[in-house]
Design a protein around this nucleic acid. Structure first.
Lengths: 136, 136
DNA sequence: ATAATTATGATAACAATTATCATTATTATA
DNA sequence: TATAATAATGATAATTGTTATCATAATTAT
């Protein structure tokens, strides 16, 4: 049976209160401010659990460690190929529904049961676009 | 200057001739049949290069090692949460264009330059759906 | 044919994550 | 409320996937 833990609650709240997409390591270092004794294994363990229960999202970045996202409203992730920052792209209710429906339909077409989907975009972010133009 | 290599050619052709999404390790073991002396580092190196040049795709699975895909026609990946197999979902020319346009538009909305995008779906595949129903 | 350069293969090094296990915190029960 | 049962923690070892190093081999240029 699953038991409450102060650590898990802290991890979830912390992730909900930030708008970036920290790695386990980054989150861990920040959490130490509130709970100095917390261990990195506990962070990984709870992040995995929170993902399973659907309370948070895991983002598989193209570079380095996995990132985590406490925002559940449907949105799209954009990773900059230059600075590797991940940005949120908001989508309007209408687009969301339209895309989701399309994706659900396609999933059912292969006889599978839909659980989740994500759209991942890569390219050059606004900032890096400018920098690249200066350097060349 | 980039030089030809038998190994790179083999890796690319091999990936083009299969319809699954092997990890570097799986591919490496299979390649040993054709070229027993090939090294795992060579496989990783060339997979990275082929990705950069846009000749193949890298798939960041939710579990385990990255997977590679030699198919360049636009399609969607579906990962089963049970057996973790990755299936291709074909999309019609029309849907492709519609979704791509939407995604490009959203990317430009945040001032970024679009390079690539992928749609990743998770759920229960046809086979595992049946098995789960038997067991419970 | 020889020189210059890039790619290879073996393996060491590394980064991210998971497993282990004794201790602690939480929940159930007497 | 005390005690038992069980799940979670934190330290750290172990593992996994991948990249770096470097001497040697293959490819291309002269």
């Amino acid at each position: 049976m699953k038991k409450y833990s102060r650590q898990r609650e802290l991890i979830l709240n912390s992730l909900r209160n930030r708008t970036d997409h920290p790695t386990a390591e980054i989150l861990y270092k920040d959490l130490k401010n509130d709970m100095p004794g917390i261990g990195i294994a506990t962070v990984y363990r709870n992040l995995a659990e929170l993902c399973e229960s659907g309370s948070i999202l895991k983002i598989k970045s193209n570079t380095g460690a996995d990132r985590y996202d406490g925002k559940l409203q449907p949105h799209i992730h954009f990773e900059c190929n230059e600075c590797h920052e991940i940005y949120d792209i908001e989508i309007e209710e209408m687009s969301t529904r339209r895309i989701e429906n399309e994706i659900r339909r396609l999933t059912e077409d292969i006889g599978a049961e839909y659980a989740n989907s994500s759209i991942y975009i890569t390219g050059l972010c606004k900032k890096c676009k400018v920098l690249v133009n200066i350097n060349y």
